[in-house]
């Protein structure tokens, strides 16, 4: 049963990711991205980290993609035309993506994965909270500080001053 669900979720993630890169319409690409992120949430559920799954749905499914869709729908983004990229751009793109692929593959092969996958020790919601706010409180606070600065910066950039327009 779990195997079937994992295959389903993995298929959604991979097909969604392929859709993001292959589809010409930018809005469709954003919708495929949402599907892919939802699939990741499903995999979190299978790993019995329900809290992460719900946060994935809430933040990535609910908040991040809305910005993307807003930008795509409000600006007149044309659908990408079928055309071959310029040779130097093509070379750079191939090199960058191959380097990324090599990096991920070495990471996957170098890691010693736990043998017994059947035994997942579920981490409870309370444990995550305690770890986040006791043990790792300082990194957490630093991250929130950085986010706050980014938020204020975005407001300052977007704010129109008197008489400006």
């Amino acid at each position: 049963m779990t195997q079937i669900f994992f295959d389903l979720m993995a298929a959604i993630v991979i097909l969604g990711a392929l859709g993001v890169v292959l589809v010409r319409s930018t809005v469709y690409a954003a919708l495929f991205l949402i599907a892919s992120l939802m699939g990741v949430a499903g995999i979190y559920v299978l790993l019995s980290t329900e809290f992460l799954a719900l946060v994935q749905v809430l933040i990535y499914g609910g908040a991040v993609t809305v910005l993307l869709l807003f930008a795509l729908m409000l600006t007149k983004v044309r659908d990408l035309r079928e055309r071959a990229p310029e040779p130097p751009q093509l070379a750079g793109a191939v090199a960058a993506s191959l380097a990324l692929l090599a990096g991920f593959m070495t990471m996957v092969y170098k890691t010693t994965w736990p043998r017994n996958v059947g035994q997942i020790t579920p981490i409870s919601f309370n444990q995550i909270g305690t770890a986040l706010f006791n043990r790792w409180a300082v990194p957490f606070e630093i991250a929130s500080g950085v986010l706050l600065v980014a938020l204020v910066g975005a407001i300052v950039i977007a704010m129109q001053e008197e008489g400006e327009r």
């Binding site: 946060v55 749905v57 809430l58 499914g61 609910g62 869709l69």
Partner: peptide
Amino acid sequence: LLAVSGLSFI
């Protein structure tokens, strides 16, 4: 409940 009901904007 809150996470799921937040998805309808899509």
